[in-house]
């Protein structure tokens, strides 16, 4: 077993894990942070998206041991207290989720997108989110929610 010290959503966190366990396994099974979902375990669906030192990654493609000394961000850290992040609110306003299993990963990826590209085109949004599979919505309302959130965040900035 490996002992790891890391920071998750701003909180210093320690855990032990088997070297074979992924960061996703650790988040879900050892730290009870079940917001990140396992849709495939092979980096093809994006439901497990988290940020590591600000870069969005699939936590199923990161070993738990690699988290040592890193800053991890998950969906649980997007809202500030009771206040939803604008992208979370826009997802509700636009009915951009049906079942909601892909939503955490899409929100994490979207937050990273808008931090890097505050004024993305529809095409940019679609390609940025191509690794976040959604089977319910046909993406239409998701894309609209992201574009609308970007617009609001720009005018608030």
């Amino acid at each position: 077993m490996i002992h790891v010290t890391t920071t998750i959503n701003g909180d210093e966190t320690e855990f032990v894990c088997d070297p074979r366990e992924t960061l996703l396994d650790v988040l879900r099974d050892r730290l009870s942070l079940t917001g990140a979902k396992e849709g495939c375990g092979t980096g093809d669906c994006g439901a497990c998206s988290v940020t590591v030192d600000g870069t969005v990654v699939c936590s199923c493609l990161v070993l738990g041991a690699e988290a040592e000394g890193k800053e991890i961000g998950t969906v649980e850290g997007i809202a500030t207290g009771e206040d939803l992040h604008p992208i979370q609110q826009k997802f509700l306003d636009h009915a951009a989720l049906q079942c909601g299993i892909c939503t955490p990963g899409i929100l994490v990826a979207t937050k990273a997108l808008l931090e890097k590209h505050p004024d993305p085109t529809e095409t940019q949004v679609r390609y940025w989110l191509a690794g976040n599979l959604c089977r319910c919505t046909g993406y239409d309302k998701i894309i609209r929610a992201v574009m609308d959130a970007a617009k609001d965040m720009r005018s608030a900035a």
Binding site: G43, S49, V52, V57, C58, L61, A112, L129, A130, G131
Partner: peptide, 9 residues
């Protein structure tokens, strides 16, 4: 290669 997420790695 892969997604935005995969590009991070």
């Amino acid at each position: 290669i892969g997604s935005t997420q995969v590009q991070g790695r």
